[in-house]
Design a binder for these strands. Sequence first.
DNA 1: ATATTGTATGAAACGCGTTTCAGAGCAAGA
DNA 2: TCTTGCTCTGAAACGCGTTTCATACAATAT
Lengths: 320, 320
Amino acid sequence: MANIKDIAKMAGVSVTTVSRVINNHPYVSAEKQEAVRRAMELCNYQRNINAVHLSKGKTFLVGVVVPFSNHPYFGLLIEGMANEALQHNYKLVLIQTNYEENKEIEALAMLKDKQIDALIICSRICEWSVIGDFTQYGPIVLCEDARGNNVSSTFVDHYKSFTAALEYLYQKGHKKIGYTIGRKSGTNSAQRSKAYKDFLEKHGIPFNPHFIFPWCFNFEDGELVVERLVQLNDRPTALLVTSDQVAAGILTCCKDRNIFIPKDLAIMGFDNQPISKVMRITTLEIPLVEVGRKLFFQAMDGENVTHEEIPVRLIERDTV
Amino acid sequence: MANIKDIAKMAGVSVTTVSRVINNHPYVSAEKQEAVRRAMELCNYQRNINAVHLSKGKTFLVGVVVPFSNHPYFGLLIEGMANEALQHNYKLVLIQTNYEENKEIEALAMLKDKQIDALIICSRICEWSVIGDFTQYGPIVLCEDARGNNVSSTFVDHYKSFTAALEYLYQKGHKKIGYTIGRKSGTNSAQRSKAYKDFLEKHGIPFNPHFIFPWCFNFEDGELVVERLVQLNDRPTALLVTSDQVAAGILTCCKDRNIFIPKDLAIMGFDNQPISKVMRITTLEIPLVEVGRKLFFQAMDGENVTHEEIPVRLIERDTV
DNA sequence: ATATTGTATGAAACGCGTTTCAGAGCAAGA
DNA sequence: TCTTGCTCTGAAACGCGTTTCATACAATAT
């Protein structure tokens, strides 16, 4: 395969001139321009992008860390990023961690060795201190409240939104409210847990550990929730479900067991995924595509560390 | 940031020796090895991966073309690839096309300019001739029957499986069978269409264009199907749905409209996604994670063009 | 007529790790 | 003693495009 030198020779010009033609720099005479183009066409020339990357010290690649790629939550986030990436002529490198710390560190290493220009972490596992060690190598953007850490972030205030959701349920008459979360640890889960405890305290409601259902990510996880639910003597009357997928799963399984929604159990989802619209699930909308877009934007704007809070919106439908 | 030259100078050796240490080549004395390691640690040295890529002519990156990334079908496919990629120390570059041809061509160009070592196309838009122009630049792997084209493929024989599904429904007493597909064009859709027509002909059943529902991808698309269904005077008694997600959506909407499954309408899904298990949807299992794994494997084995047919398995549940 | 400014072009340095090749030193086998 | 074969090391070439700097000439301004 021909390289830039071959083209230069063939067109009777210097490599500089070829480079100028390739990159549309001014100051190349029409004749030479033509000669170079002809030579490139003749050889079916393609510049070696890795040489460009080395030379420029950039790859136009942005890493995206997700625990799993087959969840609509991350799907929408990625969609937003991909759209924005397209605009900026960037590509996304997907790094699936399955919530294993070493994979996240691998992603950070990619930033260090310049394989990617920036890194977006959609769901963090590493300690902040670990992340901090890598900020010197390029922009790192988080999808959680990262204020106070030297990285940009676009996030939902889960304390606030969880509190709002709880108060909404309370005001609808619910005193016994349970909730589901994904991971037990993590900033978001911690915020929710705190919101929950503060809510209980405020209203003088006793804490019931059986009302909390961790490890709920997908539609099918709803099945287990319902199974555990029916075995409870003292059941919650409402469930705050941190994913519409899980909410849909719970709703479906409840129907099968003749648990009527919302009469027997109120359900409130999160995200406002399309499935919640079809199933008429009351939910808190998070504009995930927009969040993805903003995350990418922050990754591009590596100079400045910024934090953007995304407001959520309550969407009342038929499950509360 | 220090480069290999700096390290060499600092350790009092040549760059060759440093390179040897980095890559664990034999024939480096213990002392020099130690000296190099110390220097690297001192400088917090990180080799520039782009220089490696340029030098080696490889990037350890594999491109993955998908129309959308937020669909569980592609999610599982990617999951399989990601697992295998990890094993081989490769990373995946996600290229989302939204079914736009130019984006797919962009992906092919990435192969040409050596930004990726191989390309996996999960859902093709380009003509075969276009793909053919790029096979010289690296392995291209398809997730559809690509026999006869100079690319590897792992695929389901959709003619065969569709026929099997139709016969299964027929044998259950269904004569009026409709089906949903995603895109109208595409190898898979063509195979299914042919299977459908052959099936009708074989059993002397007249063709009814209203029984075909295109553009069905997601859960929410099931809503439209049901809406159109109820407006039909002459309704199908069974529906072959080419995605469990859509099947789940249809099932949910039917329940809301008091259309009883399978009494009023039999539904058969595809993929055996977790959702189909929870909702007890009869489906044809496609081992997508396994398919993803194999696709990646073929991408690695660029020397040989191979084709692997994946058998599907009928999973009888409660919707037929 | 002279000083500026703009256009056009190429040599060479640069980014940086890998790999080939040549050579030196030393031990085991002939 | 001589050959063969390891072990160890480094200089230099290689992969390839970008960018800086110097230069040359034409055109406009003074």
